[in-house]
Structure formats: structure tokens, C-alpha cells
């Protein structure tokens, strides 16, 4: 178990900077998810922690040791890869015990550890199989088994669920989480899927273009996104953004006025961007006029794309509304759930 500290971590390939100085403190036993769109640098960051990429600048500290120049094997970490990277020519048991073989474990010791890990992951019956004889979920479990046998200080996961189908992904998500609750090993987990991030993380780190946009607990990010990027990235469907001006009466856009919370009064007069999540719009005859463009019934809820002023917004309604395109409806935002961002940097206005 260990604490992982990144200070001013940078990465560049030649003159191209891909990570621009990341500071992050991961506490002992914490489950931290790095999330962001593709190309944001989350995998590079993880691979730098693993020692698979060199660190251009800054220091990386794992368990009180600076490990910048150490080999992966000397960092006491274990990693689960996107493709699982199981050795095709070895059985599940050999795959899992392989790292111990190279750390001078005795045969009996290795077997004991492998059996322990197999027991935790429900792999006892599959130990003699080769990777090609295993299903996707089973391979995933073997890859996790390979990581846990060594009892490392830190687990690293690189998009481990992206090769699974949607159903299995939900199952494995639960398994990884309960594994973490059992072992309490510090974990860094990379994904591009914000649902995975929300459901699994103790804390989420949102990355964009090699910079940290926000760090926080999942619900904090959902409730108080620090900027427009985080607001748009966390939550599905994405938050709606409407450009306009803050006035004394409310938020003015294209001839409409949206009511605002009282605290917004301090920003009166300036242009701003209003953010409202689809689930925070409700049908209300007293609400704002909107023209329906597209209706997508999902069963539990109905997703409606509409034109509000001259901005396209999405609303998600729990009730079964029977609407057709081109009709006009009235929607009301939950005033307490309105977010305001400035127009230049997209920073949150409070």
C-alpha cells in the first residue's frame, strides 16, 4: 500500500509537449480514475507511473521513493492492459505466476499465491487453460489475477474494460470495484468512459490536452464542475450550454428569459454561458417555449431534442410524453441546478 505523488510531471516527444505539468496526490488505498477524451494524455500519464514511458520533467514518488529512473519492475506496481497482454504460450496459472518466477519465489510459494488470487477471482477451474481457450471476461480476470498475485503497492489499469461487450463491462466494473474494496490497494484507473469513472472512483481526475481540468469526488464533479469542459464531459447526455447575458430579470437569450438563482445577481450585465443538464429540465406549462425536433423514447425516460431560442438543447423526462416533431412545448429548468460559466475561459462563475 502506498501513496503516489506526482509533482509537476511533464512529458514531451521532441518539441511536442503532451503533458504540461501535472500535480496529483493519490492517497494510500484510494481508487483514482483518470478520465478524458482520447489524446488527453491519460494513458501517457499512467504509463509514466508504470515506468513504460520516460518522465521528461517533474518527480514521481511512490511510497516515499522517487522512482523517475527506476524500471517498471523496481517500482512495485502491477498493471492491467487494455488488450490484457496475456502471454499466449502460457497457461492462466503460468501467466499469473510469471512475475513471481522472476522475483525468486519458490515453486510452492508461487503456487500458493496463484491459488489465492484464483480463489478471489473465481478462476480455480481455468488455471490450466491457455488464453485462447478463455472468454473475454475470463481473460480479463486472469489479467487481474496476474496483477494481484504480487501484492504490489499500486494497481494500474489502462482502459481494461474497453474490449468487452456492454453487458460484461457492467459486470466487470462491479468486480473490479469489489476487488478494490477487498484488497484496499492504491489504484489508478484510466478510462475514456465517464460512466466508469463516476461509478468506480473515489476521486476523478479530468484531463484535457495534457492538463488537469479538475480533481474531485464523482458527485462533486457532477454538482460543481469547475469549468465548461468538465461540465460537458461528466454526465450523459451532456450538459446543455446556452449563450446569453445575465440580467436582473434572469438569463437573456434570443428573446427568451431563463430564471436564475439569486447568487447570480453579482454577475449582472456580463455575457455568460448557462449550463443545464438534460435531467434538470422538466415539462411545465409555465416554462419557456421550445420547439420539438426529435423524440427518442427509451422506456424509463424520454429524451427530447428541442430548439430553445436559437440553441439546440436536450431534455430527459421521466414521464412518457407523447410528442411529435414541430410541436411546441414549455420546459422549466431546475433553478438550483443551473451552472454559469464565463464566455472567455469557460470558468465557473459563482
Amino acid at each position: 500500500m502506498a501513496q503516489v505523488t506526482l509533482s509537476e510531471i511533464r512529458k514531451s516527444y521532441g518539441s511536442v509537449n503532451v503533458i504540461h505539468g501535472v500535480d496529483l496526490q493519490i492517497n494510500d488505498g484510494e481508487f483514482v480514475v483518470l478520465v478524458g477524451p482520447s489524446g488527453c494524455g491519460k494513458s501517457t500519464l499512467l504509463r509514466m507511473i508504470a515506468g513504460l514511458e520516460t518522465i521528461t520533467g517533474g518527480t514521481l514518488d511512490i511510497g516515499g521513493r522517487i522512482v523517475n529512473d527506476l524500471d517498471p519492475k523496481d517500482r512495485d506496481i502491477a498493471m492491467v492492459f487494455q488488450s490484457y497482454a496475456l502471454y499466449p504460450h502460457m497457461t492462466a496459472a503460468t501467466n499469473m505466476g510469471f512475475s513471481l518466477e522472476h522475483r525468486g519465489g519458490s515453486k510452492a510459494e508461487i503456487e500458493e499465491r496463484v491459488n489465492w488470487a484464483a480463489g478471489i477471482l473465481g478462476l480455480e477451474a481455468l488455471l490450466d487453460r491457455y488464453p485462447r481457450q478463455l472468454s473475454g471476461g475470463q481473460r480479463q480476470r486472469v489479467a487481474m489475477g496476474r496483477a494481484i498475485v504480487r501484492n504490489p503497492q499500486v494497481f494500474l489499469f489502462d482502459e481494461p474494460l474497453s474490449n468487452l461487450d456492454a453487458k460484461l463491462r457492467v459486470v466487470m466494473r462491479g468486480e473490479i470495484k469489489s476487488l478494490h474494496q477487498k484488497l484496499k490497494t492504491t489504484t489508478v484507473y484510466v478510462t475514456h468512459d465517464q460512466v466508469e469513472a463516476m461509478t468506480m472512483a473515489d476521486r476523478i481526475v479530468v484531463l484535457n490536452r495534457g492538463r488537469v481540468e479538475q480533481i474531485g469526488a464523482p458527485l462533486d464533479l457532477y454538482d460543481r464542475p469547475a469549468n465548461r469542459f468538465v461540465a460537458g464531459f461528466i454526465g450523459s447526455p451532456s450538459m446543455n450550454f446556452i449563450e446569453g447575458t445575465i440580467t436582473a430579470e434572469g438569463f437573456a437569450t434570443a428573446g427568451l428569459t431563463v430564471p436564475l438563482p439569486i447568487k447570480a445577481q453579482s454577475h449582472v450585465g456580463g455575457p455568460a454561458i448557462l449550463g443545464i443538464r438534460p435531467e434538470h429540465l422538466r415539462l411545465d406549462p409555465a416554462g419557456i417555449r421550445a420547439e420539438v425536433l426529435l423524440v427518442e423514447p427509451m422506456g424509463a425516460e424520454t429524451q427530447v431534442t428541442m430548439l430553445l431560442g436559437n440553441t439546440q438543447v436536450i431534455g430527459v423526462f421521466r414521464e412518457r410524453v407523447d410528442l411529435s416533431p414541430d410541436t411546441v412545448i414549455n420546459v422549466m429548468p431546475d433553478v438550483a441546478a443551473i451552472h454559469l460559466f464565463d464566455t472567455d475561459g469557460g470558468q465557473r462563475l459563482d
Binding site: G51, T54, T59, D61, G64, R65, I66, N68, D69, D71
Partner: peptide, 15 residues
Amino acid sequence: TPKAGTPPPFWTIAR
């Protein structure tokens, strides 16, 4: 100087 005070070794991973 890094906190732990170890200078980077000559035989880095890349070398």
C-alpha cells in the same frame, strides 16, 4: 534535487 536526494543514475532505462 529530488526529495530523496538520489541523483539520476547514469544507466537510465533508455540508455
